[in-house]
């Protein structure tokens, strides 16, 4: 089921009527994916589960480390306890509750998804969605002001007129440009009636 979904995402990005929508869809889907907890596999070993849990429990005496990464004695003991609890058939939630009961909320490496701590999880969703919405709105407003400005732009006769006025300077510009230009002279010579760059050296 899930892999098929990801195909759909790719197709959306592929031939988009509007790639921005596709991006949004892809983003939303990836958020859903991540939140759907599809990492849990049935054939995962108890040991893998123990490691995973150890990565979600903080070491009470080390600054900012989980018990998975710490070599402190208490971390070693806690890792053993996690394994024992799993061997006895506890679920992941039960193991976490066991430690929360003894060490308090801050033993969990990530806040709970309930009560006040739910804020920690919800706010990022709003930040991301808000950011994308602001980006789209600002593009839209920049676009509107742009179209107005564009209509006031010069027509081709004005351009021609200017070209005549500035012909000396244009020739100079073209000389300057021919130094750095990587384009072959026959290509750029086709561009309109403007005096064009002669390649000085080949």
């Amino acid at each position: 089921m899930a892999p098929r979904l990801s195909f759909a995402v790719i197709e959306q990005c592929a031939l988009p009527a509007n790639p921005i929508t596709a991006i949004l869809v892809a983003l939303l889907l990836s958020v859903l994916f991540a939140l759907s907890g599809c990492i849990r596999e049935s054939d995962i070993t108890l040991e893998q589960r123990a490691h995973q849990l150890a990565g979600e429990l903080m070491c009470p005496i080390c600054d900012g480390q989980t018990i998975d990464g710490s070599n402190a004695q208490i971390a070693i003991d806690m890792r053993l306890k996690v394994r024992d609890l799993l061997d006895e058939g506890s679920t992941n939630a039960e193991v976490k509750d066991y430690f929360v009961l003894r060490y308090g909320q801050d033993i969990l490496a990530a806040p709970e998804r309930s009560g006040f701590s739910l804020l920690a999880w919800i706010v990022p969703v709003f930040i991301v969605l808000g950011g994308v919405v602001i980006a789209l709105l600002s593009i839209k407003s920049m676009r509107r002001s742009g179209l107005e400005a564009q209509s006031a732009g010069g027509t081709s006769t004005v351009v021609k007129q200017k070209q005549n006025d500035l012909s000396d300077y244009l020739a100079h510009v073209d000389r300057d440009l021919s130094v750095g230009s990587a384009i072959k002279s026959d290509e750029s010579n086709k561009s309109g009636d403007a005096p064009s760059s002669e390649k000085a050296k080949s």
Partner: peptide, 28 residues
């Protein structure tokens, strides 16, 4: 007045999808 920890499992979850989104944009 309740202390909580916010560490790797949290950031992986919340930032992972957005970082993937950035990689998608890198292609587009």
């Amino acid at each position: 007045d309740v202390s909580v920890s916010v560490s790797a499992p949290y950031f992986d979850r919340v930032n992972g999808p957005v970082l993937l989104g950035i990689v998608v944009m890198m292609g587009i």
